[in-house]
Amino acid sequence: MRKRINNRAWLMVLPVLFLVAMSAVIPLMTVVNYSVQDIFDDNNRVYVGLEWFIQIIRDPELHAALWRQILFSANVLAIEIPLGILIAKAMPRRGSVATGLLIFFAIPLLIPWNVVGTIWQIFARPDIGMAGMSLTSLGLDYNYTANPVDAWFTLVAMDVWHWTSLVVLLVFSGLRAIPEAYYEAAQIDGANRWQMFRHIELPRLKTVLGIAVLLRLMDSLMIYTEPFVLTGGGPGNSTTFLSQYLTRMAVGQFDLGPAAAFSLVYFIMILTLCWLFYSLISPAEEQTER
């Protein structure tokens, strides 16, 4: 099927274009503006060139936040992707049980992010939380507000709780889209379970897995609310990630210039990653469609 060429289709895209341009382009221009000026008040601005950029690129605290961010994202991806595949594979493929499980699994995805933080705060506190109390009663010295390792562990556990279901839903629908004949052919060819996974399921899940990794990577790079509620970035700076650092800079300290410069670098970093991934999974998509 070939689409018709029709430039009047632009008219239909116009509302979206207007809305998104309003709320993306104009603010971004403001950010660019801020990033190259030192602003004292509305009438008192000095052009400073790349000074803010140089400042933030040299900022050791930012480096620390960036490393923590990378470590955290790698951590949650390494757990959530394989776990999501495992659970999706363990689910019955059809029927009301499958639907029920899907609804149940989708719940964490629909809870406001700060409530997710609250839930884990209540759950993990050593004095009133179920997990905290259990760990303490086992003789472990567990306190996520005081011990960075505990805080880190709790954050990862929370993120796994919050987002693994997204991977499950994606992989599950990917698995459901595989025609029965592929399994039958492999069975007749004498393939065992591992070979079926390796040669039938994995190649056909390539697209959904690409999307799952992309989304989880992007969202984990932008994580803000949950650690804000749970640990507030502490103890110390041990759970301060990029978004928190940025927000602290912009709203807390009102360092508009550096914050704007940081915003731009942050945005471009994520866009580049996104684009890299997009072009990685796009050819795969074309192949499966052919």
Partner: peptide, 26 residues
């Protein structure tokens, strides 16, 4: 339909989904 710049527009739209909300705060 196909129209001038459709693919680029589509990717640009999608890229907004990937923008960190913190960037847009101020």
């Amino acid at each position: 339909y196909r129209f001038l710049g459709d693919k680029h527009l589509f990717f640009w739209l999608l890229s907004n989904r990937m923008a960190p909300p913190a960037v847009f705060l101020l």
